[in-house]
Nucleic acid binder design. Structure first.
Lengths: 127, 127
DNA sequence: TGAGATCAACGAAAATCTTCGTAATCGGTT
DNA sequence: AACCGATTACGAAGATTTTCGTTGATCTCA
């Protein structure tokens, strides 16, 4: 149960890179982010320093070029942010959150089938 | 489609009051929030002024005591924040968001049934 | 070995968020 | 009319977020 703060938008962009590409150097993260938007190398460095202080990433400084790793998995972070949103905007109701999410119409038939299977499982295990 | 910014945590607390109790004065919002945490009257006033500038609330200043109203419904705001989270933390996959949400184990059997019905409907209407 | 490239650290600036004190204004009451 | 309480407006301070320039250290290789 991670007690780290909820990542900000910019922090999340960095975490996405670390989740996708695994442990990375500042430069590697910088290059990926540069494809999406303009920003400076030292901006990324500073962000990673702050994220290290916050506990969002871990740093290996044994080499001259430090390696940064996301401290929590994407799943853990998703869970964290979802719970936060659930409490702050959905009055704690997972049902209404899921209904709204399904209303975004981004799920394909196959995905809906998988979701239904998950519900069946959940109900099966909940007598 | 509201092009207002995503509300901050403090703004969301105020919006919750407006959604629950309808159009309200600063004092009314203040009194409700005071039950949850300590804060000053002018803090709430200032927040509402800023939220008015941002377009998050509408203000009726025809009377001396102004009345504030949420500019978007709770549903619209939920949709907005969910879409934002979807893109920034779930790679746009509604499926994985729903799966994670269901994993919070906050939904009862009855709620799961309702969700499944919604999926059935969605699939029925999707050729 | 020394010149140039790469890197981390530091500090600081601009923007945003959150908080509230103080002052000005208005309404109702004496 | 003068006062009192309630309300809005203003401005500012502290915290956080996002950004980057500069500096000094370290590495590479010619």
């Amino acid at each position: 149960m991670p007690s780290t703060p909820r990542p900000t938008d910019a922090e999340l962009a960095i975490l996405r890179v670390l989740w996708d590409r695994g442990p990375s150097t500042v430069r590697q993260v910088f290059e990926v982010l540069l494809e999406e938007r303009e920003l400076g190398y030292t901006t990324v460095l500073k962000m990673l320093q702050i994220m290290d202080e916050k506990g969002l990433v871990r740093r290996d400084g044994s080499d001259r070029t430090h390696i940064f790793t996301a401290r929590h998995t994407q799943s853990q972070t998703q869970q964290h942010m979802l719970t936060d949103l659930l409490d702050k905007a959905f009055g704690g109701s997972a049902k209404s959150l899921v209904m709204q999410a399904l209303a975004t119409r981004r799920a394909s038939r196959e995905e809906l089938d998988e979701i239904r299977k998950l519900i069946d499982q959940a109900e099966g295990g909940k007598p």
